[in-house]
């Protein structure tokens, strides 16, 4: 049965590729157009308060999180429903990560880290819907997320440990002569953290979506053979689903690792 459906879908793709091939096949690849920020209700000017497609897809992310975590757990079942078990899974996953990676005393940061993870993972997945807009592919968005993490962690470190927090940069186990050099490297790597967090997430998502668009452009140019790039898109889409989750996971776990540095700088 499943096999039959698969072959029928395959045949449909091939046939529709033949039937609906554009008359004037041409290479028209605009991989970056999908990232354009535009006002929702017309108008060219995008002021800071204008509702844009960013707003729309961020609010959809809020809606998805609300449905999953609030409506999903509304029954409070001892035996969970499907949505509730997904919500519990997400909760347990992040809670365990915070506890294992950042330590027991990091649990008070758990709601914040959960917010980050849920936002990134839902925005990534929503961005995978065809014709959608991916908010996490913008450096402005991921940059703010990364800077929030950076500021929160630096402030926490100094509040908890005062000047001792600077010991993070002074590698006491290294030979004395090397320490200033190492300190310089440590300071640079500390300030590169938010940059790398920001660019890793946005870059991964942007690269994946751009590649999908490039393949889609090939499909437009190849005429009746357009099913070949469409298969490639399908395969790449599966990879993107994986990447969407892994990048959210990596962002969250790196936040936890940095948080551990702030809570226990001597380690």
């Amino acid at each position: 049965m499943g096999k039959l459906v698969f072959y029928v879908a395959l045949a449909l793709v091939v046939v529709s590729g033949v039937l609906f091939a554009p008359e004037h096949a041409g290479l028209a690849i605009h991989p970056m157009d999908q990232f354009t920020v535009e006002a929702l209700f017309g108008g060219d000017h995008v002021a800071w308060y204008t509702p844009t497609n960013v707003t729309l897809w961020m609010f959809l992310a809020i809606g998805a999180i609300f449905v999953l975590l609030v409506l999903g757990s509304a029954n409070r079942g001892i035996v969970p429903s499907r949505a509730q078990s997904v919500a519990e899974l997400a909760y347990g996953f992040i809670y365990k990560m915070v506890e294992d990676v950042a330590g027991k005393d990091a649990v008070k940061f758990f709601p914040y880290i959960m917010t980050l993870f849920m936002f990134i993972v839902t925005a990534n997945f929503l961005g995978l819907i065809p014709m959608s807009f991916t908010t996490t592919s913008h450096f402005a968005v991921t940059g703010v997320l990364a800077v929030l993490v950076f500021v929160a962690i630096t402030v926490t470190g100094f509040v908890l440990h005062g000047a001792k927090f600077l010991g993070l940069f002074w590698v006491s186990s290294a030979p004395l002569a090397l320490r200033p050099v190492l300190a310089l490297i440590e300071v640079i790597s500390y300030f590169v953290r938010p940059v790398s967090l920001c660019i890793r997430l946005a870059g991964n998502i942007m690269a994946g979506h751009a590649v999908l668009k490039v393949f889609a452009g090939f499909a437009g140019a190849l005429g009746f053979a357009s099913f070949l790039p469409i298969f490639a898109i399908s395969a790449f889409y599966a990879l993107e689903v994986l990447v969407a989750f892994i990048q959210a996971y990596v962002f969250t776990i790196l936040t936890c690792v940095y948080l551990k540095d702030a809570l226990h700088p001597s380690h």
Binding site: I62, I65, V141
Partner: peptide, 19 residues
Amino acid sequence: GNQIFWLLVTLVVIYMILS
């Protein structure tokens, strides 16, 4: 500016819903 504004709104709303 637009993106940062709406992102902050979104994060605050999600944080409120979650916490």
